[in-house]
């Protein structure tokens, strides 16, 4: 059953001092996907990531990374995994390049002969070449974040685990990270991105999972998560709202007025079939649009709260 999965967990759980941080987690991250790991702060995302990477041992269940059990096979698997975990961590008294060299030397499979070139390329990829020789102490939060991403890119990776990669970045930097993530996926890597920001996940991911209070409440492709299109609605702008309501009701819908518009749940009907009905009834149509259920509505329904709220 693990075929084609880059990350797979089975009943994964972690208890800290009698409190469940993660409970019975069954993640399935398809290889090659850009997988969004979404949930409010404190919903267990980082604990899960720490378990996947072998930093924290699970109190129940098991995890597999790139088809190998963790943490037993960590030495063989982790060189193929690039990670950014809970923000960047670097020695402030060393330069950005020296910090990367240090972490690269900790990887027993990294080739010291190509180290300098790989560090240069990774720094270039995140736009830090100019600051490579500067002490990290003098870096801004955004620069440290980029350096953290550069560390994850020191070698070609099969899996990237990026915990809140756009944290601390300005809008420009956020856009760059998004482009970078898509580029990595195009190169064939699986990207596992956690975030508490829905918009971010919606813009870069193909799949997503939603956490709430340590439990998985949904996972699948973004389309699957959006749910049935039966919830889509027709929004009609017209100077003849009464006539429009009558016509739509005649077509079997339940229209209502919403401000200047007439709104009706589509219930599987196509908008293009309804416009002729309106025109035939003499309704002057100014504008028609279809509103899909947004992920946001869906996720707020799943998590029962907004995404910036502590659970």
């Amino acid at each position: 059953m693990s075929a084609g999965l880059a990350v797979e967990t089975d009943g994964l759980g972690k208890r800290f001092r009698g409190r469940d941080a993660v409970t019975d987690l069954a993640l399935a991250v398809p290889a090659g996907s850009v997988f969004g790991f979404l949930g409010p702060n404190g919903s267990g995302k980082t604990t899960t990531i720490r378990m996947l990477l072998g930093l924290v041992s699970p109190t129940s269940g098991s995890a597999r990374l790139l088809d190998a059990p963790m943490p037993d096979r960590a030495a063989a698997v982790l060189p193929r995994v690039g990670a950014l975990v809970e923000g960047p961590g670097f020695a402030g008294y060393l330069s950005g390049a020296a910090n990367l060299a240090r972490l690269d030397s900790a990887d027993p499979l990294a080739d010291p002969r190509t180290r300098r070139r790989r560090i240069g390329e990774a720094l270039d990829r995140v736009g830090l070449s100019a600051a490579a020789g500067k002490r990290v102490k003098a870096y801004s939060l955004g620069m440290k974040q980029r350096l953290g991403i550069a560390n994850a890119l020191l070698r070609p990776r099969d899996l990237l685990v990026l915990d809140e990669p756009t944290n601390g970045l300005d809008p420009q930097g956020t856009r760059e990270v998004r482009t970078l993530v898509r580029g990595l996926a195009d190169d064939g890597a699986t990207v596992f991105v956690s975030s508490h920001l829905l918009a971010e996940i919606e813009q870069m991911c193909t799949h997503a999972a939603v956490m709430r209070a340590g439990r998985l409440v949904a996972q699948g492709t973004l389309d699957e998560l959006r749910g049935p299109s039966a919830d889509d609605r027709l929004h009609l702008s017209t100077p003849d709202p009464e006539a429009a309501i009558a016509a739509l009701a005649g077509a079997g819908l339940e229209p209502s007025r919403a401000g200047a518009e007439v709104v009706a749940p589509l219930r599987g009907r196509a908008v293009e079939d309804l416009v002729p009905v309106l025109v035939a009834a003499g309704v002057r149509v100014r504008g028609v649009r279809m509103a899909e259920t947004s992920l946001e509505e869906r996720f707020v329904a799943l998590t029962g709260e907004g995404f910036d709220v502590e659970s």
Partner: peptide, 16 residues
């Protein structure tokens, strides 16, 4: 410093 997790994920290996 926050470097321990990155050294271990590199992976440095705990015993090493």
């Amino acid at each position: 410093q926050g470097t321990l997790r990155y050294l271990l994920v590199a992976p440095a290996g705990r015993a090493r």
